[in-house]
């Protein structure tokens, strides 16, 4: 059993010529050579018909002289009560057959399960092809995460820490007067990332500007990944997508800038270089 299976060179060459991978070609060529060997030995290939199965079963019972039914004496008592259809092997018969095929070595001839056990089957998984992860990995140009990536990350981390530290050293976070619900500042502005929306409030009903546009916007943004069916990631192949995104990003930036710097008291239009800034972070 353990001798290396020969490769059917002819099949192998043909599969390679067809562009199959070396691994697949080797496996198929091995299978072909096994099949050839069986045919040469007069064995039949493929699954047996039900009649043939019945015959084989009867032949086996004949050979074991019915003794198999009483084989595993220990576990037999427990399982003997179970009805086994005549067309199938009873657990004891199965154990006897396994033991016979393994040459009846000391441990009852079974692999993993004692021959006398009622559990004479081993669990071998039947995996549908769809359940197997198909790994089609090409050779890629890769480098070790340590040190190459981790060093880059570390430098980025230091740079970002420096930026935050220096900014915090020279710029103070605002802290205005104590909150007073009765004293509305003029203008009252949302944080900068919502000022685009606040700007939209000037043009649309609040339900549209405050709820519909941001809500629909986020949903569309998320759905974009499913809507865009173009498989290419190259900029030259996706001019429309890039243009559309750029359009929205620019528009959004314009609205944020307008709301931030060009809106003053009463949220009316101002020119920052004339009227000054009405903006706090």
């Amino acid at each position: 059993m353990s001798e290396e299976v020969q490769i059917d060179q002819e099949v192998y060459d043909r599969l390679i010529a067809e562009g199959k991978s070396e691994r697949i070609a080797r496996a198929k060529a091995k299978a072909a050579s096994v099949r050839k060997g069986k045919v040469a030995a007069g064995q039949e290939l493929g699954p047996k018909s039900p009649e043939e199965n019945q015959q084989a079963l009867a032949a086996f019972r004949e050979r074991s002289g019915g003794g198999a039914a009483t084989a595993g004496a220990g576990g037999g008592a427990a399982t003997a009560t179970k009805e086994v259809p005549a067309s199938r092997l009873s657990p004891e018969e199965r154990a006897a057959r396994v033991s016979a095929s393994l040459g009846g070595n000391g441990n009852g001839g079974s692999i993993g399960v004692p021959a006398s056990s009622a559990h004479t089957h081993r669990l071998l998984a039947l995996v549908p092809p769809a359940g197997i992860q198909q790994v089609q990995s090409k050779q890629q140009d890769k480098v070790y995460t340590w040190p190459h990536l981790l060093i880059v990350e570390f430098v980025a981390l230091l740079a970002m820490t420096a930026v935050v530290l220096v900014t915090s050293f020279f710029l103070d976070a605002p802290l205005g007067a104590l909150a007073n619900p009765n004293l509305t500042p003029n203008p009252s502005k949302a944080p900068w990332y919502f000022l685009g929306l606040q700007e939209l409030l000037r043009y649309f009903h609040p339900m549209v500007a405050g709820v519909t546009i941001p809500g629909v916007g986020l949903i569309v943004l998320g759905a974009a990944a499913y809507v865009d069916k173009n498989p290419s990631a190259k900029p030259e192949n996706r001019k429309f997508a890039n243009m559309a995104m750029t359009f929205f990003l620019v528009m959004w930036t314009v609205f944020v800038f307008a709301g931030s710097f060009f809106r003053g008291p009463g949220f009316n239009w101002v020119w920052p270089w004339v009227d000054g800034l009405f903006f706090e972070l």
Binding site: L175, G176, A179, L183, P191, G210
Partner: peptide, 29 residues
Amino acid sequence: LSFTGYLLPWDQLAIWAVTVGTEMMGFTP
């Protein structure tokens, strides 16, 4: 995260920014 933190200093800037923001959400259909 940013918006919820904005309220915590409890100064004029904080509560009025949040007032503006939550008023918008009040228009949810």
